[in-house]
Design a protein around this nucleic acid. Structure first.
Lengths: 201, 201
DNA sequence: TTTAAGTTAGTAAACACTAACTTAAAAGAT
DNA sequence: ATCTTTTAAGTTAGTGTTTACTAACTTAAA
C-alpha cells in the first residue's frame, strides 16, 4: 500500500469525503465508505483524524476555498462598474465549475450536530455575509446603486443565488447554471440598477 | 397502554417525528427515539407504517399544511392592493408561529435518499413555486408591479424569504422573525414597488 | 369472539472506534 | 552507497453499541 504523508493523506480523505456527500448524501459518509473510497482500511483513517467530527470540521474548512476565490474576485473587480452583476456571475461560474462544493456550502443541516460544528458554521456564514456587505458598500460608494441598505441588499442577492443554485442541484445539475442563473438575474439587476436611476429624477 | 386507532396513532407518530427533527436534527429520527417519544415500543411503530421511508413520506405530507395555509392566504388577499407585501408577511407570520415546520420545509437534504423521496420533494417545490408565480401574475394584472417577469420575481422573493428564515433558524429562533423579516423586506418591496413607478415616467 | 394494536424477545447488519501487529519509508550510521 | 534503526502509516482482528426490523405472543377494545 502506497503510503502518504499525513498532510497528503488528509487531503485525500477530505477530497473523497466531499465526493461521497455530493454523490450519495451526508448519510453515506461513514468511515467504512470513506476508507473504501480512499483505498485504506478503516483504522487507517484514524491515523490522520481523531474522530468523525474531526473529519467533518475539515470538510467545513473546504468552504474556505470558496471564500478565497470570492476575495480574489473582489480584488479583481475593484474599479469596475457593475460589481453586483459581476459578483452574481462569479457565484454561478464558481459553482458550475465546482458542483461538489455546493453540497457543503448549501447544506446547513449537515453541520448541525457535534460539539463545535454549529458555532463554526455560524462563524463561516457570518464572515461571508460580511464580505458581501462590504462589496455592496463599495458599489454604493461608487454610485453603482443608491438609496438601499447594503446589508438588506446582500440578503436579497444571496437569497436569490442560493435558491437558483438549489434548483440546479435538485435538477441533478441538469443544465447550465451560468446561463440559467444569469438569465434569471437580469430581473434582479434591473430592479437594483434602475432603482438608482429613478432616484436621480 | 392506551390504544389509538391507526389514524390517530399515525398523526401522533408524525407529530413526534417532526418535533425530533426540529429539536435534534434528522439524524436523531430513529425508530427507537420515535417509539420512546410516542410512548410505545419499536415494533408498535410498524403497526402503522410499513418502514422508515413510509414515515418520512408522511412527514413530507406535513408540508401540505403550509401549502393549504398559503392558498387560504391567497384567497384572503384577492382584491387587496399590496399582495406581494402581504405574501411576504404571511410567510414570516406562519413560520414564526410554526417554527417546527421550517425544519422540514427548508431541509432538502433530509429527503435526499430513498426510492420515492426526491421525486416527491421536487413535485412539492415545483407546485409551490407555481402558486407563488400565479400570485405574482395576479399582482401584475392589477398593476401592483410592472415590467418584470413574474417567475423571476418569484425566485427573488422566495430566495429572500428562505435566507431570512435560515438565519432565524441558525440563531436558534432567538428573535422575532416577523419583525426582523419585515424590516429587511422593506428594501425588497422598495425595489419592486418603485420599479413600477419608474416605468410610469 | 374477533380484531387490531401493543409487547417481548429476538435478528442481522452497520456503525464508530481500539489494540496489537506489520511494514514502508525516512533517518541515521558506517 | 549500503546497512540498520526508527518512525509513522497501514493492517488484522476485534469491541460495544446502535440501527431497522421480524416473529410470536398478549391484550384492549369493538
Amino acid at each position: 500500500m502506497a503510503r502518504l504523508k499525513t498532510e497528503d493523506r488528509r487531503k485525500n480523505i477530505i477530497d473523497e469525503a466531499v465526493k461521497i456527500i455530493h454523490k450519495q448524501g451526508f448519510e453515506a459518509l461513514t468511515i467504512r465508505e470513506l476508507a473504501y473510497r480512499v483505498n485504506v482500511t478503516e483504522p487507517a483513517i484514524y491515523r490522520h483524524f481523531e474522530n468523525k467530527e474531526d473529519i467533518i470540521l475539515s470538510i467545513m474548512d473546504r468552504m474556505n476555498e470558496f471564500d478565497e476565490e470570492l476575495n480574489r474576485h473582489i480584488e479583481s473587480v475593484k474599479g469596475k462598474e457593475r460589481k453586483i452583476a459581476e459578483l452574481i456571475n462569479f457565484h454561478f461560474l464558481f459553482f458550475e465549475k465546482n458542483p461538489e462544493i455546493t453540497s457543503i456550502i448549501f447544506s446547513e443541516d449537515i453541520f448541525r450536530n457535534g460539539k463545535s460544528l454549529p458555532d463554526k458554521l455560524l462563524s463561516i456564514l457570518t464572515h461571508r455575509r460580511g464580505i458581501i456587505c462590504k462589496v455592496l458598500e463599495d458599489a454604493k460608494r461608487s454610485r453603482e446603486y443608491q438609496g438601499l441598505s447594503s446589508c438588506n441588499l446582500a440578503t436579497i442577492i444571496l437569497g436569490f443565488i442560493r435558491l437558483v443554485v438549489l434548483r440546479w442541484r435538485l435538477s441533478g445539475f441538469a443544465y447550465s447554471l451560468v446561463e440559467s442563473g444569469n438569465s434569471e438575474s437580469k430581473t434582479l439587476l434591473k430592479l437594483i440598477y434602475n432603482y438608482g436611476k429613478q432616484l436621480k429624477i
